[in-house]
């Protein structure tokens, strides 16, 4: 059971970190795919170059939120030279935590009429 205190130490995540976790929440990916995924989802608003991406991924790796895969996925998608990454359970918890935090924020924004759909 992940420590609650530990969670608070991770949040709030940097935008880049959260994007990476989001990308990996959909399944295992290699680095370049994560890059493209983020670009697509944000419509080009967040465009990561290799340096920033891999640096952030390195930090997530060291913090234990993602891990490298030892086995390769199905042969069709395999590229020998590519490393694949996936979320760890800890990473999943943190990603959820961050999503919830953002949700709360959005709710407050709605209440203050910054976004449509708020209750008075």
């Amino acid at each position: 059971m992940p420590d609650r205190l530990n969670l608070a130490a991770f949040l709030p995540l940097t935008p880049v970190s959260f994007e990476i976790l989001l990308a990996l929440a959909g399944g295992e990916q290699h680095g370049y795919a994560v890059m493209l995924d983020i670009e697509r989802r944000t419509d080009g608003a967040v465009s990561l170059h290799a340096g920033s991406l891999y640096r952030a991924m390195n930090r997530l790796l060291e913090a234990g939120l993602i891990e490298e895969l030892d086995e390769r996925p199905a042969l069709e998608h395999d590229d020998e030279r590519r490393r694949y990454y996936r979320l760890t359970p800890k990473g999943l918890t943190v990603a959820r935590g961050e999503a919830r935090r953002l949700e709360l924020q959005v709710e407050s924004a709605r209440q203050r009429r910054l976004l449509p759909g708020g209750r008075a």
Binding site: H30, Y32, M35, A50, G51, L53, Y54, N58, R83
Partner: peptide, 20 residues
């Protein structure tokens, strides 16, 4: 310019990404 450890780990992937 990157530290050697970092380069060894991600250098290949970075070059590929760059190429594409």
């Amino acid at each position: 310019a990157f530290p050697r450890r970092f380069r060894r780990r991600y250098g290949g992937a970075m070059r590929q990404a760059f190429r594409a």
